[in-house]
Design a protein around this nucleic acid. Structure first.
Lengths: 170, 170
DNA sequence: CTTGGAGTGTCAACAAGGCTGACGTATTGT
DNA sequence: ACAATACGTCAGCCTTGTTGACACTCCAAG
């Protein structure tokens, strides 16, 4: 906390963006924006028997097909019991397929079915539409800043997961 | 869906930051970052009998002292029953004070007590520490972009609340 | 071959914190 | 006088998180 002190007085650049008031505005921005961020898929899910937890599972299974339950657990940061409840309904509803591992048959590899991919598409379309509008309004430089700050805000392991996914997808 | 493609060919400025892959990374960044965002206060609250809902109430009561229940309801976006449950414990634990309105005696104006302010300080210190570290790492331009994107991502009414608070605090 | 441990699934019980609906009580404004 | 507003509360439901306990399958080491 006291380490940035020396650097701050060095140059002429003001560190006014680090005042408590600025930080509080950042906090409130996160709070309000996250509500918007989840609002659209939530609306869709309410019409079904699903919730946000189902969305998250579907998203990351789609993103990393064949992932194991344990891996998904780590990414989502919940207990296996909690995930299992969600997974069970998704599997029995035919949206997710659980395949026994070839090398290690204890593992279950998760894949979306055709129906699962369809739902994923619907949900992420809704979410991307909002994100796209926000990105377009803000412009490329703002988006770069947005990503930089968010990345710096993550926990260590979360950042690792995030980067792993990022590199996989690119 | 396919519109991010077609728009990309329009002008000389590349719209590569609007590809589905970029949007998806933005979505995942929000997901992981929000976890970090709430992690520190959550840890503190776990040791008490409180949860994230209490934190939110305390935050906004501190931010807008004397606010009415209805107003708080609108900001938090929950039902009065849900808020009341939280408020009841905070009041009976002596962290929040509910004063009958002078002009309109139906209204209750909410204030933090000394103990309430102390807890608020503890919680927001934890949250601001992380936010400050992230801001400092990212730099002022990134922070500006961060805020711009988040603001564009909010719902209409949320943005109104956000801006109202912003102007009040400044 | 036996056995320990890892990965997984499942049951039970519980809590936080959302929600709806209904009702009661002041208080205020028409 | 009456309707509307602001608030509190009871009751009940849902999702999604938690712990704890236990069983099963399979792999690998002894």
């Amino acid at each position: 906390m006291a380490d940035g002190r020396s650097a701050s007085s060095v140059s002429g650049e003001s560190l006014l963006f680090l005042t408590d008031e600025q930080l509080r505005q950042g906090i409130e921005a996160m709070f309000f924006a996250y509500r918007g961020f989840t609002a659209d898929p939530d609306r869709i899910l309410d019409d079904m028997a699903y919730g946000r937890a189902h969305h998250r599972a579907i998203h990351f299974i789609n993103r990393a097909p064949g992932t194991t339950v344990n891996n998904l657990l780590a990414i989502l940061g919940v207990t296996k019991q909690s995930l299992n409840r969600v997974l069970r309904t998704l599997i029995s509803d035919g949206l997710v397929e659980s395949r026994v591992g070839r090398n290690d048959k204890r593992e279950r590899h998760l894949h979306l079915t055709e129906a699962g991919r369809a739902l994923e598409q619907t949900l992420s379309d809704a979410q991307r539409t909002r994100m796209r509008a926000a990105f377009r309004t803000a412009g490329p430089e703002a988006v770069a800043g947005f990503r930089t700050v968010l990345e710096a805000m993550m926990d260590q392991e979360m950042r690792a997961s995030y980067i792993r996914l990022k590199e996989t997808g690119a």
